[in-house]
């Protein structure tokens, strides 16, 4: 009987669990989007003016960086299915590099705001009125929470990369790689909505 040597594994259940977790993430950001829309509705002028100050160029660059990184991790699943370990590792490496590039951009963007004394709790910002305080409070909180998710995603993908190097993940057992991909795509998905809400709608 070969049953004895078989280890118990349920990839569908593991994926379902990942999706359930992603739903809680969607509800978390969904709640923040509700807060944003209510405050935007109550302070249309201030939100309009404040959104003009964000750099559309950096926002667009970061959107494209995240989209490319999403496609590379998606392709790494294809690579592992085709037993191409080297390509899978290369694609994951590119994904990690792009994630870091996103954070570097974010660092310079936030640094620019802070230099102009625009940050939550700043007295200069308080003088500009309640609407600006709300806009930048939400901006820093939502993009900050998103950046935290990027950091968590990078650590997750880092572990997956090590597992692939050690052959713990291969063409017959790649549910973990798929799950890390799902998490990374969700982070991308949230940014797809954050970007127009903060940078484009002025």
């Amino acid at each position: 009987m070969s049953l004895i040597t078989e280890t118990h594994r349920d990839d569908l259940a593991s994926k379902t669990g990942m999706w359930l977790f992603l739903f809680t993430e969607m509800l978390l950001f969904g709640g923040l989007f509700i807060v944003y829309s209510v405050y935007r509705f109550r302070n249309p002028e201030a939100f309009h003016q404040a959104a003009h100050e964000l750099s559309v160029f950096i926002g667009t660059a970061n959107t494209i960086i995240l989209l490319i990184s999403s496609s590379t991790i998606a392709m790494s699943v294809t690579a592992i299915q085709k037993k191409n370990k080297k390509l899978a590792l290369l694609l994951l490496g590119i994904t990690i590099l792009l994630g870091v590039a996103f954070l570097v951009n974010k660092y310079f963007e936030w640094g620019g705001h802070i230099k102009e004394h625009i940050y939550p709790g700043s007295s200069v910002l308080a003088l500009r009125g309640q609407g600006d305080v709300l806009f930048y409070g939400l901006y820093f909180f939502m993009t900050g929470l998103h950046a935290l998710h990027i950091i968590i995603g990078l650590v997750f993908i880092g572990f997956i990369t090590v597992f692939i190097i050690k052959d713990k993940i291969d063409y017959s057992n790649f549910a973990l790689l798929e799950n890390s991909g799902l998490y990374w795509h969700l982070v991308d998905l949230i940014w797809i909505f954050l970007f127009p809400l903060f940078y484009l709608i002025t």
């Binding site: 795509h185 991308d188 797809i192 909505f193 970007f195 709608i201």
Partner: peptide, 18 residues
């Protein structure tokens, strides 16, 4: 802007997220 974001996210959900 929101319509385009919705189209983009449907691509991400359907293809990238399988």
């Amino acid at each position: 802007a929101l319509l385009i974001a919705a189209v983009k996210s449907s691509f991400v959900l359907r293809i990238f997220m399988h």
